[in-house]
Amino acid sequence: MTEQQQVKEQPLGRRERKKAATRRALSEAALRLFLERGYDDVKVAEIAAAADTALTTLFAHFPGGKEALILGDSEERRSSLTAAVRGRADGTSVLDALHTFLAGRGMFADDLDNEFRRRLDLVVRTPALRRYARTLWVDCEHTLAQVIAEETGKDADDLGLRLLARYVLEVPDLVATDPAPRDSLAEAFEHFRRGWPDLA
């Protein structure tokens, strides 16, 4: 086991646990207030007060403001996309790995708990949150193109590869209101496999 793995497997320290608890309290307070009163009628100061924290603390944890309280930032998405492509099983294509990755997230997952479903419904019906969610995914375009290039020996600046990365990342927003999003996801990836057969 490497030193880095040992560090990762160590339990969180007191400071990290406190930060995680504060983030969770702020996020939960935001969700509760947004559901009760509507996203546009809640101010960030009210969320901080509901979580019993200072406004400066809220912005320290969520510099993206109200949207970030529900959706976080792009960093988790970047690292998860990278892991999905790099960590795919032998014989699994890049497109199959990305399809499987997206199928297990958000609206595509079939095992959502009640709180996450409420959060997802809020995002879909709130224009500002939906725009922010799309931005978070699209912000991962360079990362996704880069990791696909590294895994396949292609040029990350190749327009075809950049197009694929963008199209894959647009799917969650494109099918957000479809009656059967998992079916739409599968259909989207069939198009990708026909358009990029060397990655299928």
Rank of each mutant, 00 (worst) to 15 (best):
R130K: 10
S79K: 11
R125N: 07
A84P: 08
R193K: 14
E76W: 12
N114W: 09
Q146F: 11
R15W: 13
A200W: 03
W196A: 11
V7Q: 10
A97L: 07
S27F: 04
G104T: 15
A30C: 10
A30Q: 02
E28M: 11
F116P: 05
D52W: 07
A133D: 09
R32N: 14
T2V: 08
L33K: 12
G87I: 07
K19S: 00
Q5L: 15
T177L: 07
D111W: 02
R162L: 13
L169D: 02
T100C: 09
T56V: 00
L35Q: 05
A145G: 14
E9A: 05
S184V: 01
R118I: 12
R182K: 15
V94Y: 09
T152A: 03
V175T: 12
R119D: 10
T135H: 07
A165K: 08
D96Y: 13
D113G: 08
L31C: 13
L136P: 00
V42I: 11
M107N: 08
Q146S: 10
L136M: 05
E190V: 14
T2E: 04
I148P: 06
A54I: 10
A25K: 00
A128F: 15
D139G: 00
A83S: 14
L164R: 02
A176N: 11
L69S: 01
G106H: 08
E28P: 04
D40N: 13
E190A: 13
T57P: 06
R78Q: 03
E151W: 06
A156K: 14
K19V: 00
A83Y: 10
E76M: 11
G38S: 04
D90A: 08
L31I: 08
D173G: 04
G38Y: 02
A180Q: 13
V123Y: 04
G38P: 02
D110W: 04
L33D: 04
A176I: 12
F101W: 13
A50R: 13
A60H: 13
E151C: 04
V7A: 06
G87V: 09
Q4K: 15
A103C: 07
T126F: 02
Q5Y: 15
G160D: 05
A21H: 09
T53A: 05
Y132L: 07
S74P: 07
F192M: 01
A180Y: 15
P127R: 10
L122I: 08
A145N: 06
A176T: 03
E75Q: 15
T82L: 12
E16S: 11
T100A: 11
E28N: 14
E141R: 10
F59E: 01
